[in-house]
Design a protein around this nucleic acid. Sequence first.
DNA 1: GCCACTTTGTGCATCGGTTCACAAAGGTAC
DNA 2: GTACCTTTGTGAACCGATGCACAAAGTGGC
Lengths: 235, 235
Amino acid sequence: MIRRLSQARERGIPEATVARLPLYLRALNGMSERGLATVSSEDLAVAAGVNSAKLRKDLSHLGSYGTRGVGYDVEYLIYQISRELGLTQDWAIAIIGVGNLGRALANYGGFVSRGFRVAALLDADPAVVGDRIAGLNVEHIDELEAVIRRRGVSIVVLATPAAAAQQVADRVIAAGITSILNFAPVVLSVPEGVDIRKVDLSIELQILAFHEQRKTDRMTGGAAMAEEWPEAVDL
Amino acid sequence: MIRRLSQARERGIPEATVARLPLYLRALNGMSERGLATVSSEDLAVAAGVNSAKLRKDLSHLGSYGTRGVGYDVEYLIYQISRELGLTQDWAIAIIGVGNLGRALANYGGFVSRGFRVAALLDADPAVVGDRIAGLNVEHIDELEAVIRRRGVSIVVLATPAAAAQQVADRVIAAGITSILNFAPVVLSVPEGVDIRKVDLSIELQILAFHEQRKTDRMTGGAAMAEEWPEAVDL
DNA sequence: GCCACTTTGTGCATCGGTTCACAAAGGTAC
DNA sequence: GTACCTTTGTGAACCGATGCACAAAGTGGC
């Protein structure tokens, strides 16, 4: 294996980098719209809310696309990041569970941005099956496997109630899906090779509450803690 | 400073641990409902989808609440984690932006779970101001400061269009809010001391797409890459 | 064609987080 | 009270990610 691309890129962009690429892409799109031709790591980093050394290291994992003394070509970098993320192809997604959240997701514009297309809506409730939402017919979950095959769905968004999520996930995976975005507040157990991303509103709020509490504790002196912890004053 | 609580706990639970506490809490609540009195780190870890050593280390940051040879008392641990996260108090949250997403969030049941209460809905669009959603009147954004004060809001959920988000965030922060959950696809710039959590559906999808692409690349041999990279065959 | 200036790409030190593996601590049986 | 069993709590090695700081590489002026 003499083949070594400029430095990295043979299997393995750090996960942390992958998570930031969409951020860079968004910032770059804004710059492209404003007509900028090139951008320095410093400017792009500020726009994406990260530090410029980190940005350069992230980009270096894709290859060497900058020009020293100048910066990065905006359009070229957009193309490279898009391709790396797989956004040059069209991804058909299915939303399962058409409650409040599923409905909102189906209608959410930013969802479809660049590369993604909601190709199917499914639900188990006969009362909503047949409804027309965001230009799509809601289909019955019994059709799951057929719909996935027919529409070429490769990413599934789970917006079912918590109680149904694991069961639906199992079926979806059995149907060959290996990428799931889960909104249901449960820990899904899935086989090796299946990627799950979780979005959990309640957890996010709890994390905020933790920090908010710390902040207000600090303001009120923090002395109250001792009262709550008589037995913890040890040694 | 002779005061050293059992080991940790004086300013500083690792951020990664804080992010997992809600997970443990949820698993514990399930166990409590099923009537379990105690649970071992191993069982709880499985339920929360983490490794047991990590779970024990996480819990050790709160104090020493387990009993060797036995495990953890479910109810006691629920109480301790709840208190640590600040869920023993009631948090009033305001949702700003009552589009598809804001509406879904307002109606989303899991949102209100334990400790959180949607106390206000605000929007800039006169067409929706006055609507009644999830038992609340939608108020005009001009009322922002008054509503925050009057209802004791301490956490704000931003569900506005991207273009408005920074401006609204600035106002919210000026009104004294220091905890924001942001659904708008923008990088908010905020002063020191303000906590932002970001939920970005589009980014999650892009990360999934990246991995999905890798998986299918691998299946098709990955040879196609060379064609796309004529100039990258270097040295 | 050379010099001064800019900005990338990266080696290296550092840090936070994860995992292993085991000693310490408690329970139970006899 | 002792011996054995279980499970916690944590020291220490490891791993990935971050950020500094600088050499390398390019541009533009003259």
